[in-house]
Design a protein around this nucleic acid. Structure first.
Lengths: 185, 185
DNA sequence: CAAAAGAAGTTGAGTTCTCAACAACAGGTA
DNA sequence: TACCTGTTGTTGAGAACTCAACTTCTTTTG
């Protein structure tokens, strides 16, 4: 078992702290200034950029990095507020279109400037040009490394896995002989 | 209003995607392999590193980047599973100690190797030495830039802010005259 | 010292998220 | 045609989180 070196440990904790701070602050800024939670904001953004401001639910889900389930709940709520409208899809009767309404677009227009300003102020303004470049590379490298895993993870492994969950999910069996595990999930 | 340049836009989206993928994958790995949600894992880690494996609730909260409220709920649950124990604090009668139990420590020992391995595999192994360095700098720069804001945000602004919240928090007052650019980050 | 101000923790209500199950349809195969 | 398999989207239950009170105790200040 290889643990993290001290340097890696330091970088890892800096990463955790920094990403948390940024998402915390941006989320709070968005929520307080425009009353839109960040995840809902991302839905509005994705729709606003789509042709006709309309996307299939599935495509919208992957654009927002949301599970289909979560998106379904979220869009249901956004529909109640009148920012998104759903309509049935004729080419594929299972499907559904989600479209941004005028009201939704207006809400986005109100929220965006403050959000973008915050992103600039707390991310790009504190980094050098070179750091920005490297940040892009790092992001790309992480994505490449995880693209395989996330394809699997994106819609959950539907394995049976008979969860009973009394209280906290009882810590999985051994972990010692995981190598010989016949059907680990 | 200054929007993001195309390059900034690219980097920003790479950042969002990469941090999401990483936290998604690590969280799922931890959950499935040891049955511990990532936030609970962080509580166990923080306690395990404290003298006597014991911390005041507040200190534990900031070590885990959790609100006092969230920590209180989480520790209540961890106490039910027998991994953490609370005891009253004599020097400060308002306070409470949280301690890691033997069972909690054992659970952590079971979970840690898999988690660390995943961090190494999907973060450090995909980066060059230099990228790791720069990542550390970037994290530090972001923290420095936000330390002021987050001091405020860490325990919420107790402003009155008369929230009514019928459905979605009605989009903040006017902010009427914004540049009419729909695209956002 | 007494009163106000602040800090530590908890609680309950409401919101969002996850997970597993499900219904409805599509596409292929026999 | 009937069947099997996979895809799309929704649902309900339960878990986790947020937010605003609230209680209890500490510290400050007049």
């Amino acid at each position: 078992m290889r643990w993290l070196t001290e340097r890696e440990q330091r970088v890892w904790r800096a990463y955790l702290q920094a990403t948390w701070m940024l998402s915390e602050h941006l989320g709070r800024q968005l929520q307080q200034e425009s009353g839109i939670p960040h995840t809902y904001y991302e839905i509005l953004v994705a729709l606003s950029e789509a042709p006709n401001r309309t996307l299939r639910m599935s495509d919208l889900a992957s654009a927002c990095r949301a599970s289909r389930s979560r998106l379904s709940h979220a869009v249901a709520k956004l529909e109640r507020t009148g920012w998104v409208r759903r309509s049935t899809c004729d080419e594929d009767k299972r499907g559904a279109w989600a479209s941004l309404t005028e009201a939704g677009f207006a809400a986005l227009e109100r929220a965006a400037p403050g959000h973008v300003t915050a992103v600039r102020e707390y991310l790009f303004d504190v980094l050098t040009e070179e750091q920005v470049d490297v940040l892009g590379q790092i992001g790309q490298a992480i994505q490449d490394g995880l693209s395989g895993e996330c394809a699997k993870a994106l819609e959950q492994v539907e394995e049976v896995y008979a969860a009973d969950s009394a209280e906290l999910p009882e810590v999985v069996p051994s972990a010692a002989e995981r190598a010989t595990d016949p059907e680990s999930a």
